[in-house]
Nucleic acid binder design. Structure first.
Lengths: 348, 348
DNA sequence: ATGAAAGCGCTAACAG
DNA sequence: CTGTTAGCGCTTTCAT
């Protein structure tokens, strides 16, 4: 013995009511209240009604920490975010975060945001949250080639779903959801073909970007299928406005395209700059299509046609897959590939 | 008796090690391990070393749920986000989220994102998280006039810090951090004055936007202090590109300004459109300054000069204030007003 | 259908 | 400086 209670039985005004408070008020035991919350069907209707009334009066909500400890789950989804790249039209991540928060809420989860202390450690942040059982699962978004976190998380048996294909390991066991970039650029290319363009140029990223090559393939196959040439019409550069501007200037001089498909809105804005430099009107003289449907695409004159990723749908599917992972339900297919749409604006 | 242990003593491979595991391995009691983690100075150096070795070998990290339950704190900061407005250059929120995550990490906190189920309920989401003790405090960002959550949270004694002044209640007790919009537009105005402009127009929001009126005051006082007129040079419209475009067209016709200061980048982009319509070159014929330093400002040709909010600094100060709130330290001043900077680009 | 008891993993108070 | 004990609020057997 020899120990004073830390808190007097009479609840402090500030602290929220507990199961015991509700039980006392409703004249039942604590477990009955718990059952009312978690397994309502176990209670007699009149008891349930009484307990529910008490819950409402007290504004009771189960204490999360206690519930988490007991159920060994936090109802939290971890999402690692990276710093913004200034000067680009990077829009995907932010739109996805919003969609994910909404989709998660529907499944009873909240999103916990974290960032990497050490940017060079692919598992930075993940590992700590995992070992501390601070989250139930992760949503991994940076699964471009060469980012090994998916594999590493797989190894540790960490529950997660990737937004992005495991490019370097198609047989990876974890579930993933991705957007078919090639289908997007193909959509863009066919849109331009339908508008009568035959010399359509590509401006994309360096060859070591798998996503870039995927997007490029939609352009090249779209042209090939109509028997149109691609030779001399492609350029691979860094993802900056200046690069897009430079590459388009060279292409216009050397290959005389009437339209451009770009791997990003950033590059496409660069093309618009070149056109303006030369007194050409986007959409009339030369057509331009970007990728990501960023704010910039919506704001620039005359509006940039752009491939739009269905991020709301991605988020819904990610959460659905996550639920499967957490209940250990085997999936027929680990991956799901969604098709983007085209937001048509003045530039085409 | 009559109750089987739910889990065999031999730890399952999947579950993380606990205090007891570390204690056993280090040959000390559980409490000593706890002390090693939380009050290292209580241990003898050699014991500490032994415990630390065991912790490292096992990869031990305290279970968050258990710690949360015991310490009655979650080390989580709640942040409510709203859906994106398409078609505007809204950039503030996303940049702030990133900064907040980083600043929070420094203080040992993670950011929990949530959204409002019922958009009409100002306390939607907040209340539940509070009663469930799922977060330790909130960061409230939507404190424009007429948004009552600050007051309501104050009433419930919820710990929070606002990004944004309590416009409708300057004596509100809660801590807040804000950016001085008037100082920003004044900076913009003086920048234009220094460049020789004397007829500087304003395009802002409707009069019921307090933030809009604040920003407007920086423009008007900047001109007044130099004895320059403002009459007929101001327009108040909705925050869309089309509105900015329309308003600038009217102003150019009726008041012949040589420069524009706008309440947002969205409006400023509208002005750029009008200039392009008329064959005027932004930055040479007419100067334009926006507000928020969005991606669009960086991407448009010839670059949009824009007022930039110091969001990294805001986040740091918000977290600092939060730490004060949670440790119940009285602040000398509830509010902190930070000064924005001007990102000068081709449009001026 | 309801109640009693145990314990999730941790830390705070106390005794040694 | 280390070990013992109690308990945060909840859910989960099990017994009534």
């Amino acid at each position: 013995m020899g120990r004073m209670p830390e808190r007097v039985p009479g609840r402090l005004p500030g602290s929220p009511p507990t199961l015991a408070d509700v039980a006392e008020r409703a004249g039942v035991s604590r477990q009955t209240v718990s059952n009312a919350v978690n397994n309502a069907e176990l209670l007699r209707p009149d008891t349930l009604e009484r307990v529910r009334a008490a819950i409402a009066e007290l504004g009771y909500l189960p204490n999360r920490a206690a519930r988490n400890l007991r159920t060994r789950s936090s109802h939290l989804l971890g999402l690692r975010i990276s710093p913004h790249l200034e000067g680009t039209a990077e829009a995907t991540m932010d739109r996805f975060v919003h969609s994910l928060v909404e989709a998660s809420r529907g499944a009873g989860y909240h999103v916990l945001l974290f960032d990497a202390v050490d940017r060079t450690d692919p598992l930075a942040g993940y590992d700590d949250l995992l070992r501390a059982t601070a989250v139930d699962a992760f949503v991994v978004t940076d699964t471009y080639l060469g980012n090994p976190q998916a594999g590493l998380l797989d190894e540790r048996g960490a529950p997660f779903v990737a937004f992005g294909r495991p490019w370097d390991d198609p047989g990876a066991p974890h579930p993933w959801v991705d957007v078919d970039g090639a289908a997007g650029t193909r959509l863009a290319t066919e849109h331009l073909l339908d508008r009568g363009h035959e010399r359509i140029a590509w401006i994309g990223w360096r060859k070591d970007s798998t996503i870039g090559e995927d997007r490029r393939s939609g352009w090249s196959s779209g042209l090939r299928d109509r028997g149109l040439p691609t030779t001399g019409l492609a350029s691979r550069v860094e993802d900056t406005v200046a690069s897009g501007r430079g590459a388009s200037a060279v292409l216009l001089d050397e290959a005389r395209p009437t339209a451009f498909v770009c791997a990003s809105d950033t590059l496409a804005v660069g093309v618009l700059h070149t056109l303006a430099d030369r007194g050409l009107v986007a959409g009339r003289d030369v057509a331009v299509v970007g990728f990501d449907d960023s704010q910039a695409a919506q704001l620039v004159l005359p509006g940039l046609t752009s491939v739009r990723q269905p991020l709301e749908q991605v988020a819904v599917e990610v959460v659905r897959a996550l639920e499967g992972v957490m209940t250990h339900q085997p999936r027929p297919e680990p991956g799901l590939l969604l098709t983007p749409t085209l937001s048509v604006r003045g530039s085409s």
